[in-house]
Design a binder for these strands. Structure first.
Lengths: 234, 234
DNA sequence: AATGATTCTGACCATTTGGTCAACTAACTG
DNA sequence: CAGTTAGTTGACCAAATGGTCAGAATCATT
């Protein structure tokens, strides 16, 4: 197990997919056909892998979701494994862009709120990717071990250090910063991963933009207050 | 999809399983053999389903995990689906026992702490069951729709009502009680479901009892303070 | 020892799995 | 136009899938 040598930035991803637009769109120069097809395959695969996990997802099911013959999927992606890995890499690229430049000089209230808000939006804009990631971790992270122990660990500990410095300066309580990051992580992640539960229990049939705004405000409030963060300067 | 007519209480479950103890233990009267085998099969199946999800888990893999031939699994459980359903029912029974008797007269701080603590312990004592549940929800809860929209919804809204009454009595802030429950849920669930992530990032190789105690204290503190709950009377 | 119920399991089956391959079409290039 | 490259796809394959079943082994009771 474990691959993911480099984070390819094939991104330029649009979650949307309209099968109609692909019909005989042949023409274009260079690799535009490839690009378009890969985008659609990745989108379809993301949904299927998110729902069934790596083992549970079949190439056939992905093919049907993408409206293409199975052979075509394999032509573009090589095999099931590398398709999966590409999706993980894409999703990790999205994580990495998150809260990428904070310093001790920043205002804790602002940064924490921004973290909660952007994490919440990430879960909302890429629910399938979010679930894909969750399924991978749930299964013991067979493909992501090295990422967790490397890059992500660095990411977490560098933020943790800043939180600690804030605490030293009396800008917030002395709480364990790593547990705090996990708390924010889990609380925001929940609305993508456990969407079915949230919908079932609240009786909604979708989580609206207004809901997201309310939840974000709720979480921000509880967590800032809970950590004794001094309200925003501005 | 969707079955789960009644919650059978076949429980008396012990997470442990030592294959050696089953070797030719034939003897006993009535259905003791059945009971013992079913217990081991359920334990093995819980692990496998938790790791791979419903589709991804194979009966063969469960059989190997249980150290029994595939036919034997099917002899006891009928088929894959009903084995899976039995596991879900068992896990739901464990949820239901949670925080089952609270009233407006109770102390909010005490109840919330008890909730966090017992939910945390549930995740710890039954990590595979916890992950099994998570995988089911992640996949859109195909087997649990009716449970979510029925029993669990009732559970949540009855607790929510009590939280609201506490707020009215000025014992805590006016926060949306349902979001609060989800917050506690996700934060505690996280340590079972995302164990691989927590271990990878923190560099641990297991989450110790002491860790659990620290995390519980951390969550309790943040959430109580965050909700403006007056500290315990006693 | 005979009997009936339970437990156990290998052989088997239709279907699905991930993946290969050769043939085919379409498009660009000289 | 011929040649090359990229894209497309059905036919095919060995392995694994969930499940059946007949029969063997073991049990409790008489």
């Amino acid at each position: 197990m474990s691959e993911l040598p480099s984070i390819e930035k094939t991104s330029t991803d649009q979650m949307c997919l309209d099968n109609t637009s692909r019909l005989r769109g042949r023409s274009d120069g260079n690799g535009a056909t490839r690009e378009r097809n890969e985008r659609e395959i990745l989108a379809a695969a993301e949904r299927v892998f998110a729902q069934y996990g790596y083992r549970g997802a079949s190439v056939q099911a992905i093919a049907e979701a993408a409206g293409l013959p199975k052979s075509n999927i394999l032509y573009y992606m090589g095999n099931k494994r590398s398709l999966y890995v590409r999706l993980l890499e894409r999703m990790m690229g999205r994580w990495n862009a998150l809260l990428d430049d904070i310093s001790v000089e920043d205002d804790p209230a602002e940064v924490l709120e921004a973290f909660i808000r952007s994490k919440m939006q990430l879960s909302r804009q890429h629910p399938e990717g979010s679930r894909l990631f969750a399924a991978e971790i749930l299964g013991g992270a067979p493909f992501l071990q090295s990422y967790l122990r490397g890059e992500l660990r660095e990411w977490v500990s560098s933020r943790a250090r800043i939180f600690e410095q804030w605490a030293e300066r009396g800008l917030m309580d002395r709480v364990d910063p790593v547990w705090l990051i996990f708390l924010i992580w889990s609380a925001t992640q929940h609305y993508a991963d456990f969407e079915a539960q949230v919908l079932g229990i609240t009786g909604r049939d979708e989580i609206s933009d207004a809901d997201v705004e309310r939840i974000t405000a709720f979480l921000t409030r509880i967590i800032l207050k809970g950590c004794g963060v001094k309200p925003r300067k501005t």
